[in-house]
Design a protein around this nucleic acid. Structure first.
Lengths: 231, 231
DNA sequence: ACTGTAGGCCAACGGCCGTTGACATTCCAG
DNA sequence: CTGGAATGTCAACGGCCGTTGGCCTACAGT
């Protein structure tokens, strides 16, 4: 009778991740960032490069690699710290906790191209090629997919990226504005599906396609999702 | 001197999963399965329902739910056993270890429909509708996706399902046989992408589509991947 | 009635994890 | 030169995990 809600015991860590991904300012601020030398010149304080910048960057780079390779649960702070060549406690000092580190390592900028000044029948090809390059330039998107699939907070972040960075861009070329969300979701389903097969599951025939082949196959699909009349 | 390979300690769990998913017979056999009453009638021994069958089924059902909801790492044997109403050690007795349990819980049967006797222009719609229903009838496919994205052994299993259960079915309706793998991968990318958005990431516009709408949008895409000439 | 065996529970072990706090070192302002 | 903040190391804590082995119970064959 002592424990009245044992079934909810396992959800605490996930809450931490959710809070961190929501931009919750609850994380303990890194030393050196908030308070300057008190009476010193604010501009000088901001301009002086912190010696820790290199360490922070190394941690972030190692974290991106590990999260992309292993997902959130299997990527351990100890392993990330080892890759970065520092002590695990430094990760805590700079990013508060594991969730905060992931939130920092998974800041997503899709940089979807502006399609308003692209000929309508080239928009889809442009889009496909952009995402191929974006996906291969670093492993952030792979990491986001790994965590989004496993973790509800990660999924929420992906929905946010979709709503804030994908939908608006596609709405600009949608003939009927109120259909934009549906059409954007269809586009996302095809692009994410190809990324899943090619970069995460490594399905051989999907890996073997050249960029041009992927564009040639997918662009007509995307184009139809964008502009064809509602079936 | 007892333990001769201490350096490989960190990789053991993943290897165990890989071995289990490869159908490695190394797992300790469950009691009651291999040896009958020695001198008894073999038919009677096989027919007599083991009292443990219900427990085994309960474990498997709980495992499917947990793996689907949490992925491989976060789904704990303790939680699965609690859901099944038994002791964690029973899981070990029946399935050897966690990897063996997952291997048993993720036996995938896609049951892709035979398309050889379907009018060519209906094949795609039939396929899309089948996968919608298949995906919603239980959570096995969601579990497979969660693990396939996070775990290399899980990805290997998905590639196996693709090669053995998807590719052959689609090859039957492919005009050019040697293009079958590529076309099957394209089909898989669209179907898995929609499943990802709809059942895993829960992207709102994708969730809101009815079956008929999904079929209406996706079928032309699938049809083109199946039968349109190579672009 | 007796006994072997399958089914089940319990307590524990060793290990890895995230996290913490105390202590050493480097750097810079005064 | 000196004091304090920034940077970094080390060792440890508590917790949860997968896994193991011992012990108890119920039942079927003889």
């Amino acid at each position: 009778m002592v424990d009245h809600a044992p079934s909810a015991a396992g959800t605490a860590p996930e809450d931490a991740l959710a809070a961190a991904l929501s931009g919750d300012p609850g994380a303990p601020g890194a030393p050196g960032a908030p308070a300057g030398p008190a009476s010193g010149d604010a501009v000088a304080a901001a301009a002086r490069p912190r010696r820790s910048a290199a360490t922070r960057a190394a941690i972030l780079a190692a974290a991106r690699d590990r999260f992309a390779a292993d997902g959130y649960e299997r990527a351990t702070i100890r392993a990330i710290a080892r890759d970065a060549g520092i002590d695990p406690s430094m990760v805590m000092r700079y990013y508060g906790n594991k969730a905060g580190l992931f939130a920092a390592a998974s800041e997503i900028e899709v940089h979807a191209p502006d399609l308003t000044h692209v000929p309508r029948d080239e928009a889809a090809a442009r889009l496909v090629r952009h995402f191929l390059e974006r996906w291969e330039c670093d492993e952030t998107l792979t990491a986001m997919m790994r965590v989004g699939v496993t973790n509800e907070a990660g999924a929420e972040r992906m929905r946010g990226v979709f709503a804030e960075q994908i939908e608006p861009v596609l709405a600009a070329v949608c003939p009927v504005p109120e259909e934009a969300p549906t059409r954007a979701a269809l586009v996302a389903s095809q692009i994410l599906g190809m990324a899943l097969c090619r970069y995460v599951l490594h399905v051989p025939p999907a890996v073997g396609l050249t960029h041009d082949e992927v564009v040639a196959w997918l662009a007509p699909t995307i184009q139809r999702y964008l502009t064809a009349e509602h079936p």
